[in-house]
Design a protein around this nucleic acid. Structure first.
Lengths: 336, 336
DNA sequence: AGATAAAGTCGAAGCGCTTCGACGAGGCGA
DNA sequence: TCGCCTCGTCGAAGCGCTTCGACTTTATCT
């Protein structure tokens, strides 16, 4: 194994100079830097991560906590994970994957052993059992999502409340007066996962504000459930002309179901969704949607963490403004 | 920060004794062990991961390489990942998540810096660019999946060839004579991902052996594509009575499509799948299937790696035998 | 009884890196 | 011209842990 002393000898400098050339923490003459880099290349030197961590008390590893709970849409979660890894690499950090099997102890373990410098926590619930741990930890953390009481924590997410509102306002602008929200599976609400509730709040608030008739319908992530909701809506709310879908798994099945029941989209029924653009754009009928920008959120979370690691202050809450993209699934209400 | 010397002082022993009490690498009297454990609990001692790694040249971290390529079924991949993490934790190891953004260099980096002790590589292609790296690395690795030339590597996976055969044989037993395989998306075959091809080989070989008429149909992971394949099959192979589906995303849509075209499952058409039991069992019509045992494969991969880390020899190839579970989607061919 | 082995413990030497203080050489303001 | 600061470099002191050799004590074998 090539070590820093080998590089130093080969470059005719001391080990500390090599270290400073690498870290840039002290000025090094251009010429010396060249020689050091040359030696590193020649010898194929790679600093030992453990030694580095020991000496600098920085592991350059972030923990990513991904509880795969029932009802979540796995591909979306994976998107976040990938964007976190990519962003972390851009900052010369790696990512340790933690699931929830270990419980909250896992957080403490990786933090206390100095395995990781900081933590990113996904799928945050309103009353999340991990919050006390995070607050007690001596390492910075960022939540992707918002708990009920975010004080003292750093959170980032799409502004789901605003997303719900934006969808309604889009429908209002198109003349719709009766709208419904088809939401996440019931267990997601039961668990009090913030984003599901927030969409519902935004949706309802905006509808009320504009004097619309509105209703909210949790929905399982199966085509059958989608069909059932569609039938129920036609039966109970025949004047319905606008639907907001906040449930990745049933976006297409739901539209299929409506069409199967004789409604045409968008002429009879406008549909807008809150989901990744990727998904909305690829649908058979491209769906007007507010994007869930996983890449931005993931990168943002890493950015916040880096600032905190650097000792800088960061805002407690970072809400990404919703961006609505019009596609083929929404249109003016036909004046029947 | 509590360190080993603190524990040692508190327990009235030397640091090395604490270390041995923890690792069990030398005998320690029951009484001393008690005192040490008590001190550890009292002080809340956690060994510093970096220091440990430096002194022992073991980081107790595994790398998991997860390239999220087009056409793969993300939830299945995530299943594997979770089972790897769980199994790794059971062996007191953590898991570093690598995506493919970094290319093959990432493998070398984490191995050369001693960030990880060993690697698990998923989504292996027949000609995988990572193989040369893996062979050159000084650290053990296990592939989940099989490349074209597995010599010198350690691989584990479901025996997909046998899985294809088992499905055909099940249909044969039920009297079917004309069968089709609806497979993974074309890009998965184009990439020469082993398991897709192997299923097709097993399927075709078994069909030929039993004198069946057979055909293979790659299929995009969209309901529309499923519908198109269903229509094509009815048109071109009207005598068809048995279908094997090897494509998680379209299992249900395909059955829906067949039923939409007037076929009843299983009375007119028997359908069997190769997919996680979870998925097959939860379908509207539970589907007879060969399980893709992600938990076993993940745990197996970790197990192999631990053996290799322990210096033990392991077989180059570990093929898990397919297990078929009969459900509601297959039945005797009706003697029309 | 003497020799040998095993159990149980300690002290010290690193593991490979970062970082602190120090120091010479040169630049600059007064 | 003197003092002072910055640049560029070095040497040495750790970071917190594991592990090796050595030592004492006790058990085991002939």
């Amino acid at each position: 194994m090539v070590k820093i002393t080998d590089v130093a000898r080969h470059a005719g400098v001391s080990p500390s100079t090599v270290s400073y050339a690498l870290s840039g923490k002290r000025p090094i003459s251009e010429e010396t830097r060249q020689r050091v880099e040359e030696a590193i290349r020649l010898l194929g030197y790679r600093p030992h991560a453990g030694a580095r961590a020991l000496a600098s008390s920085r592991s350059n590893v972030l923990a990513l906590v991904v509880p795969l709970r029932a009802g979540i849409h796995v591909p979306v979660v994976m998107q976040f994970a990938v964007s976190v890894v990519t962003a972390a690499r851009a900052h010369d950090h790696d990512v340790l994957l933690l699931t929830q099997e270990e419980g909250e102890d896992g957080l403490r373990r990786v933090a206390d052993t100095a395995l990781v410098d900081a933590l990113i926590v996904m799928d945050v619930q309103l009353q999340d059992p991990r919050l006390p741990e995070l607050r007690a930890l001596d390492r910075p953390s960022v939540l992707i999502g918002f708990p009920a009481e975010p004080a003292g924590l750093t959170c980032i997410d799409l502004d789901f409340r605003a997303a719900g509102e934006v969808c309604v306002e889009h429908l209002v602008r198109l003349g719709h007066r009766v709208v419904a929200l088809v939401g996440s599976p019931p267990e997601v609400y039961a668990r009090e996962t913030g984003f599901a509730q927030r969409v519902a709040q935004g949706f309802t608030a905006a509808a009320t504000r504009h004097g619309l008739s509105s209703s909210v319908h949790p929905c399982e992530a199966t085509p059958d459930a989608a069909r059932a909701v569609a039938e129920q809506l036609l039966r109970e709310r025949p004047a319905l002309t606008g639907v907001v879908v906040h449930n990745e798994a049933i976006l297409e099945p739901l539209i299929d179901a409506f069409e199967g029941l004789g409604l045409r989209v968008p002429s009879d029924l406008s549909v807008t969704a809150i989901c990744p653009n990727e998904l909305a754009g690829r649908a058979r009928l491209p769906v007007t949607s507010v994007d869930v920008p996983s890449a931005e959120v993931g990168a943002g979370a890493v950015e916040l963490l880096m600032k905190k690691l650097g000792g800088a202050g960061v805002p407690e809450a970072t809400l990404l403004a919703p961006r609505l993209t019009e596609r083929a699934s929404t249109g003016r209400r036909s004046v029947a």
